[in-house]
Simulated assay, not measured.
Amino acid sequence: MSLCLSLDDLGQRICIVGPSNSGKSTLAKAIGLKKSVPIIHLDQLYHQPNSQWVPRAPEEFLRLHVAAIARSSWVIEGNYGKCLHPRLQRATGLILLDIPVSTALLRYIARCYSAKPRVGGIGVQKEKVSREMLKRILFDSPKNYLRYLSLFEQAKIPKLLLSSPSDLNNYYHKWQLNK
């Protein structure tokens, strides 16, 4: 793991994982635009478009995921642990975001009250604060993070751990990315 990675060091298939509301979607969009590679938001593959977060059939999601990672280049963001291993096998670079739970919670609440469309969203005009998402942020994400950290440590590809919002902002600046 290097703190001096250039964007080019991560290659043409970059996988971004991390807790809900850590900035994965926004970072993926910025990298995809900078590198001119397809941007894949896993929430958009997993959920039916323009729904209130209604999932697709599992086999449909897996089919869409397989097709997405088969491309020659991409930046893909999202966790979806059941299909993370095949994604990491195709990835040329890995970014793990690790932000405090309090930051994720504040970002989620702000997102729900914002009139701005969510980057990586599914076409819902305005999200509502939900118990399910609060539970995910407060309880599930910290547990899942340990699994993602273990996978990160085992990865043999160029990888970057960004462990604070300031680390993330430093890389936006270093890589000359637009938010």
Rank of each mutant, 00 (worst) to 15 (best):
R118N: 09
V124G: 08
P55I: 01
I109L: 11
T26D: 05
S51E: 09
G78D: 02
Y148Q: 12
Y172K: 02
S150R: 06
L168M: 04
K126P: 01
L106V: 10
T92P: 03
L10F: 06
S2K: 15
Y80C: 13
L84N: 05
L97N: 00
T26N: 04
K24Y: 00
N178F: 03
S6L: 07
H47Y: 15
L45F: 12
L94C: 13
V101M: 05
M1F: 15
H41L: 03
K135M: 14
E77A: 10
N178I: 12
S72I: 07
R71L: 04
L7N: 02
Y108S: 04
W53V: 00
E127I: 09
Y80K: 15
I76W: 12
L146V: 14
Q44L: 03
E60N: 03
V124H: 11
K35A: 09
A110W: 06
A57R: 07
C83V: 11
D8I: 08
A57D: 15
S164W: 10
H173S: 11
I76R: 00
L88E: 08
P142I: 10
R107K: 11
L149T: 06
S130Y: 04
Y108L: 10
R131M: 07
I99S: 00
S20T: 13
K126A: 09
C83Q: 07
N21W: 04
S114F: 08
Q154F: 07
S163P: 04
K156L: 10
N170K: 08
I122C: 05
H41G: 05
L33Q: 10
L146A: 13
K29F: 09
R118W: 04
F61I: 11
G11S: 13
K126M: 11
F152P: 02
L96C: 09
E59Y: 05
L62T: 08
G123V: 02
C15N: 13
L88C: 05
Y80N: 07
R63F: 01
S166H: 08
I31P: 00
L177W: 01
F139M: 14
W175D: 06
G81H: 13
S22E: 02
L64N: 05
N21C: 05
Y148A: 01
P100W: 13
C15R: 06
R131E: 04
V129N: 12
K174P: 00
S114A: 11
G18R: 00
R56E: 06
P38N: 04
L33D: 12
P165E: 01
Y80D: 12
F61Y: 15
E132Q: 15
S25E: 02
L33T: 12
S114V: 05
I95P: 00
G32A: 14
K135T: 06
E77W: 07
K126Y: 10
K179Q: 12
L3Q: 12
G32K: 01
I137A: 09
L64Q: 13
Y148F: 12
K159M: 04
D43I: 05
A67Q: 11
Q44R: 12
N169F: 07
P86Y: 10
S150H: 10
R13C: 11
R63P: 08
V124C: 10
G93Q: 14
